[in-house]
Simulated assay, not measured.
Amino acid sequence: MDKAKLLSGTSDLVINSPDDIGITFNQHIPDAHLAALRSERMASKDNRKDYQRVASVPTEVVHKWKREGFDIFKEDAKAIIARLQKEDLTAFITTNKQV
């Protein structure tokens, strides 16, 4: 392994050896962050605000989806929630309300 780069909470590892060439994408998500999202989701039942965060999607998931043709910045909240559920990433959903 010749190169490793850390950029804003994500890491891209370029593997460049005679037998293996590739790129892996990783992002560490602390358990405390997941616990805070879970608490926010549970508290959303009592939240009566007009605007509310519906998800907290990690950077690497956004990049992965972009590579797959799903642009989170052009999709509506319903499509984002559906995609999180489809990929079993419900830990990043921050509301129990119908979107």
Score class of each variant (00 low, 15 high):
A43H: 07
Q85G: 04
D31E: 14
S17N: 11
L13C: 08
Y51W: 12
I29T: 04
P58Y: 01
D19L: 11
T90C: 10
V14P: 02
I23Y: 15
A35W: 05
M42Y: 12
I21T: 07
D50Q: 10
T24V: 13
D50W: 08
R48D: 06
Q85E: 12
D50Y: 05
V62N: 01
P58T: 04
M1T: 09
K3N: 14
T95V: 05
S11F: 04
N16P: 02
K64G: 06
K86P: 01
H28F: 13
P58M: 02
D2G: 15
I23G: 10
I93F: 01
N47I: 03
T94G: 00
R53H: 06
F92I: 01
L13M: 11
I15K: 03
F92C: 01
L6V: 11
P58E: 01
S8E: 12
N16K: 15
F92W: 00
S8H: 10
N47M: 02
G22T: 09
K49R: 11
K5A: 12
D19F: 11
G69S: 06
D2R: 14
S11Q: 15
H63C: 08
E68Y: 03
A32D: 08
A36F: 03
K45Y: 07
F25K: 14
F73K: 15
A79F: 04
D76V: 09
E75S: 05
V14Y: 12
A77Y: 04
I80D: 00
G69M: 03
L13S: 12
L34D: 06
D20G: 09
K86C: 06
A91K: 02
N26D: 13
A32W: 07
N96Y: 03
D20T: 10
H28S: 15
G69N: 06
V61K: 00
P18M: 09
